[in-house]
Design a protein around this nucleic acid. Structure first.
Length: 804
RNA sequence: GCCGAAGUGGUGGAACUGGCAGACGCGCCGGAUUCAAAAUCCGGUGGUAGCAAUACCGUGCGGGUUCGAGUCCCGCCUUCGGCACCA
């Protein structure tokens, strides 16, 4: 009889062996094909590991372990994305240095991850807050600066009027400060920006080069939001000045009955002396400035706006004077900050025109513009549009654009929704931006040999009264000499956003201890691109896009060898509480992974998270489900008493063995971990009904289960005296011919309803199937007395008899 | 409001390319074992009717295409993720 299945003993034992032997270190053997598997490195929060973390980690651990058995040199690294707001806020509250907070959190996370038995190469651990790491984050920033992709621009931040600090969007709740409830307004700051828009086209086009799940590609494409259209100049009456708009519908120009500019548009300031209702304009501006962009979107159902009294524009094709309004639905950050309003054919303009009683002109026939805007571009025909009349929308677009270009009234233009990346934070816990401002030379980079520019010590991590980062108070750090002219200079006191360190960490993993370069050319050549990157859907538009941008930039300056960083991108669903709500302390539905490991073992937790449901969907936690997985592993443990001699598969189990190898092998590749495990469960049920298994069957079974449950399988491998360790073996192979049964059960339908089943050879023909079917009483009953009008026979699938 | 995704038994989910809906697990019911319980093992388990064979109904709702629809098409509803009213 076997010993009891003692999870904590077995799991600690193997974790120690793997650690000591360096079993999962990526080897230096570069003759082997490489495989680079990557998961999003965690933010080490003070709460410790969440049961959501192991889901993606286990999934790619399964892939990594399988790849090793398939003969690949695998890199599966782990690190810490450790700069960030929660740590900083914790530091402020508890007056502990964020570095110490980070160290503690990392230690806790690391211990927890180790207890799950992941095959990470811990020798390559990186930490974004380590000066030896952020030295290179700063270096990349300087390269961007050097190439003109970093620039300063005025950009609004969320400003809490009570705390007098800038807030992240997340900290603004219903227009109020999350911590003090104070009023939040938009305050303009001069900020560092990165020109991601310069890469907009490439970021869309090169999606063709990679294998991302469709919804990731779609979301990225939509986020970048390319649209073709035209910029058109409208003259401001009597001012000799042009007001430029972007439109995707230049064909509707004859229907433009008014203009709307953003409340922040510079024209307002410029012509303030000509504007008669400046008071109401300023009032409206103030109101708009109190809304975050998100609130402008969410709360503003009813259109609001104010007409500028004193300025008029001239429609360039009709020559008519039209009014100019301001409204917060027009944003300074998209297009030109001004629009031509065509209420007949744009829904927002229509609502606005109805509310303020502005004229609506129909220029595309097909709808009823008194009832609603007609926005169809497929079916309409131009009317009321002079030389465009009778054309369809597509033709009209082309003709008017040519006309505008010819008359120098406008030009073709491709616009993107994507905005440049605001790269400044007025915070302590981030990478210092390595620039010095000199009166004479302007912004000057810190020389490369002086990197890393490390964070100075401060007494207090709170931002200053005027919204500057706390490091602005450390005068002897701020005051320095200009690296260029040697004169007086001041350091930039803004730090980088959390996204910076995570935009290139996968490059550092390839050569994490390099002091000369962020990674050697050879390492990059060998390991890139990442073969499989899994992460959350919530990172699709920010992190994933930012890191692709940085990577493409590095490619363009010749320091990385491939144009795209990640060959394949997949995404996992969230794990919710048992009550189907997001896990959170306040909801009292948090599950602690340590307790699951303690009570059931790491293998059970790993297996449960893979079995819990569709990997790509969010799914509620279930304690009973955990028990079920433990029950399965108990059955696996008992198999050792059923093993009999024989390297071959027995006749009874032959087809099942080959089927299961195929199923598990394929499902692990396509994120269908749940059905792979279901197949292994079925197989063990078959083992139990046969009552004994050969060593050959057991061997294969352990190899198939190993990626999911590595500890118990290594232990059984050892107990049964198989050679070496499982991690030295080869992945199981299947024989396609042996995966199919000779005979199958086929459903027979009459008029599309199943009336019986027949057992026939897989390759039986229609006549044979029909003969069998006619033997079936119930089938005959439904055919009797009727005429057969059609027989549909799909070999191996179905036999359907249509009768009348 | 916009972008993306998803709705299947009591429950988590399965279902290849349009081909027996509910694999596998949980729960529940019955039985074995036990002084008893837990654990374990065996059997059953979508709904309605029927002793049964079987019949009808059934994949969010309403239509449609097809010999055949969870799967495809049109129109809705609900839930989740993301957001920058994107002209």
């Amino acid at each position: 009889m076997s010993k009891a299945y003692n999870t904590s003993l077995i799991e600690k034992k193997w974790q120690k062996i793997w650690d000591e032997k360096g079993t999962f270190y990526a080897s230096e053997d570069t003759d082997k094909p490489k495989y680079y598997a990557l998961i999003e490195f965690p933010y080490p929060s003070g709460k410790g590991l969440h049961v959501g973390h192991p889901r993606p980690y286990t999934a790619l651990d399964v892939v990594a372990r399988k790849r090793r058995l398939e003969g690949y040199n695998v890199l599966y690294p782990m690190g810490w994305d450790a700069f960030g707001l929660p740590t900083e806020n914790y530091a402020i509250k508890n007056k502990i240095h964020p570095r110490i907070v980070t160290e503690n959190n990392v230690a806790k996370f690391k211990q927890q991850l180790k207890s799950l038995g992941y095959s990470f190469d811990w020798s390559r651990e990186v930490n974004t807050t380590d000066p030896e790491y952020y030295k290179w984050t700063q270096w990349i920033f300087l390269k961007l600066f050097e190439k003109g992709l970093a620039y300063k621009q005025e950009f609004p931040i969320n400003w809490c009027t009570d705390c007098k600090i800038g807030l992240a969007n997340e900290e603004v709740v219903n227009g109020a400060c999350e911590r003090c409830g104070g009023e939040v307004v938009r305050k303009i700051k001069n900020q560092w920006m990165l020109k991601i828009t310069e890469y907009a086209e490439k970021l869309i086009k090169d999606l063709d080069l990679v294998d991302y799940i469709d919804r990731v590609k779609i979301q990225q494409t939509n986020w970048i939001g390319r649209s073709e259209g035209a910029e058109v100049d409208f003259e401001v009456a009597g001012k000799g000045e042009k007001l430029r708009v972007f439109t995707t519908r230049p064909d509707t120009l004859f229907g433009a009955t008014y203009m709307v500019i953003s409340p922040e548009h510079p024209m307002i300031e410029k012509y303030k002396d000509d504007i008669n209702n400046m008071d109401s304009i300023i009032e409206y501006k103030d109101m708009a400035s109190k809304k975050s962009d998100f609130e402008r979107t969410e709360l503003v159902k009813e259109k609001t706006g104010v007409e500028i009294d004193g300025l008029k524009a001239i429609n360039p094709v009709t020559g008519k004077e039209i009014p100019i309004w301001i409204s917060d639905y027009v944003l300074m950050s998209y297009g030109t900050g001004a629009i031509m309003a065509v209420p007949g054919h744009d829904t927002r303009d229509w609502e606005f025109a109805k509310k303020f009683n502005l004229p609506i002109i129909e220029v595309v026939k097909g709808g009823n513009v008194e009832e609603e805007a007609f926005t169809d571009i497929q079916t309409g025909e131009m009317i009321n549009s002079d030389f465009l009349n009778k054309l369809n929308v597509e033709e009209a677009k082309k003709k008017i654009t040519d006309w505008l270009v010819e008359k120098k009234l406008g030009e073709r233009k491709i616009n993107y929704k994507l905005r440049d990346w605001v790269f400044s934070r007025q915070r302590y816990w981030g990478e210092p931006i390595p620039l010095v401002h000199c009166e004479k030379c302007g912004w000057v980079p810190v020389p490369e040999e002086d990197l890393p520019l490390t964070l100075p010590e401060v007494d207090n991590y709170e931002p200053t009264e005027n919204g500057e980062s706390p490091i602005a108070k450390i005068r002897d750090w701020v005051e320095t000499t200009c690296p260029k002219c040697g004169g007086k200079g001041e350091r930039e006191t803004d730090t980088m956003p959390q996204w910076a360190g995570s935009s290139w960490y996968f490059l550092r993993y390839t050569d994490p201890h390099n002091n000369e370069e962020f990674a050697s050319k050879e390492s990059l050549e060998y390991w890139l691109p990442v073969d499989w990157y899994n992460g959350g859907m919530e990172h699709t538009t920010l992190h994933l896009l930012y890191s692709r941008f940085w990577h493409k930039f590095l490619y363009d300056i010749g320091v990385v060898p491939v144009p795209e960083p990640y060959q394949k991108r997949t995404s996992h669903g969230m794990i919710l509480g048992e009550n189907n709500e997001k896990m959170s302390k306040s909801r009292g539905n948090v599950v602690n992974p340590d307790e699951i490991i303690e009570d059931f073992g790491a293998d059970t937790l790993r297996m449960y998270e893979m079995f819990i449901g569709d990997f790509e969907k969010s799914v509620p936690w279930s304690m009973n489900g955990v028990k079920g997985c433990r029950r399965f592993l108990d059955k696996v443990w008992k198999l050792q008493d059923m093993v009999v001699d024989g390297d071959e598969y027995s006749k009874d189990l032959m087809t099942n063995m080959h089927k299961t190898i195929k199923k598990v092998s394929e499902d692990f590749e396509t994120l269908k971990f749940n059905t792979a495990i279901a197949a292994l469960m079925s197989l063990i049920n078959d083992f139990n009904s046969v009552g004994k298994i050969t060593r050959g069957e057991m061997r294969t079974f352990l190899i198939l289960l190993n990626p999911v449950a590595p500890h118990i399988t290594e232990e059984l491998w050892e107990i049964l005296g198989f050679e070496n360790m499982i991690s030295d073996q080869q992945w199981a192979k299947w024989d396609e011919d042996k995966t199919v049964d000779d005979e199958i059960e086929m459903a027979v339908q009459v008029n599309g309803k199943v009336r019986g089943t027949i057992v026939i050879a897989v390759d039986a023909n229609k006549e044979q199937a029909k003969a069998k079917a006619m033997e079936d009483e119930n089938i005959m009953k439904h055919i009797d007395g009727k005429t057969i009008v059609k027989e549909i026979y799909v070999p191996g699938k179905i036999f359907n008899i249509v009768v009348k």
